[in-house]
Write a protein that binds this DNA or RNA. Structure first.
Lengths: 211, 211
DNA sequence: AACAGAAGTTAGCATCGCTCACATTGGTTT
DNA sequence: AAACCAATGTGAGCGATGCTAACTTCTGTT
């Protein structure tokens, strides 16, 4: 269930290359290739040429589907954010709305995603001016934030646009976001023993929401 | 006082280019040029060639001082981390050791740094496997973390290597780190009004350290 | 004054991003 | 069914980049 962060699935059901030209799946195959490359070689160490090579196509072909190198990255980021949203929503599902467990579960899904795909995670949140120039990404990000907001609103018995609710949610998100980055940057770090994510998340959820 | 994050200073006192060859300042001038480029064009949109051009030397010259493109970036990151450390240490100075104000001030310095130089900030914490392959950066990062740890240790009357102290400090750092990234990624964001950093930091400091 | 090495230069290779002109294909129109 | 057209592929090619190699020039030591 939490593994489906990794499963991506083929475009929409076993679409197999039919002919050399027009194999119909290129766009999706390119995105998949780029996701792999970003994951293994880092967000910068990716090249359109290499992605094309992996898809078995000439180095000019990608530009029939994407305007830019950047547009490819934005698409990968968008697809990743969709998966992140799904993971967050699903994670909180089993727990009562507004419970500490629900909040912690959302955070756990976030951290898991970062740890499972650090390259893509960094891409999603590291795109220079990515969010400003890409309303789609901005919006998908907001949708993720909304998952947290909903639970906080329930807990505090207030509407989702209540300033208090938003600021509590933002604080929680800051923590999870920061912890995710720190976790993938400096794996074990100075905090002696390995960090127990769940315990951390519950602890923070309680400390913040009780304040 | 908080502006000195921006001042970088020349290498070590007005060293002026003396002749066309061997102008003696190249290494520092390159680092400065790269810092500028990273800041204006993002961490990826920087090229060694452009940096060389700005320093008025041939595109091969930089390789007499740096092995790699990556090594230049690491140097810029290292220099930036030194400035970050200085800013953090200085910021907490006016306040009593272990006070909420001291902790908040450290966080404020961190956030200010990120906002003032988002490009460099992203570089410092976005270097793919940068920390694993660069013990120097790892160590400089630890030194920054140490500033927080020291105050938490004082407040809790415990040694700096106490697991509790470390975990409190880590949680605080996660917040500040996450908030910094969010602040530079999505400038005003959904949280309606502009965020008051200081209030935010004090609030977190109190909520966490009281738990 | 001679020399060794540090620190520049030019030339050049492979790769990359991206564009252009052309080839192929599949679906739509008559 | 034939003709056409837009979508999607190919290959050649331009300019920029990262990095190396061989050469030159400057500087400090003996």
């Amino acid at each position: 269930m939490s593994d489906d962060v990794l499963s991506v699935g083929t475009t929409g059901g076993g679409v197999t290359p039919k002919t050399a030209y027009h194999h119909g799946d290129l766009r999706a195959q390119l995105i998949a290739a780029v996701r792999d490359l970003v994951e293994t070689h880092g967000p910068d160490g990716f090249s359109v040429a290499e992605a094309a090579r992996r898809a078995g196509v000439s180095s000019a072909a990608p530009y029939k589907h994407f305007k830019d190198r950047d547009e490819i990255l934005r698409c990968v980021a968008a697809e990743a954010m969709d998966r992140l949203y799904a993971a967050m929503a699903a994670a909180s599902d089993p727990y009562p709305a507004g419970s500490h467990e629900a909040v912690a579960a959302i955070g756990q899904a976030y951290v898991d995603f970062a740890k499972a795909q650090p390259g893509v995670f960094r891409l999603v949140f590291g795109l220079t001016d990515g969010h400003e120039n890409a309303p789609e990404l901005q919006q998908k990000g907001d949708r993720c934030f909304g998952v947290v907001v909903a639970h906080v609103a329930t807990r505090r018995n207030a509407p989702e646009d209540d300033p208090d609710v938003l600021s509590y949610a933002y604080i929680l998100w800051s923590f999870v976001h920061g912890h995710s980055f720190l976790a993938i940057d400096m794996k074990h770090h100075d905090v002696g023993t390995e960090i127990d994510d769940w315990a951390f998340l519950m602890r923070v959820s309680r400390a913040i929401l009780a304040s």
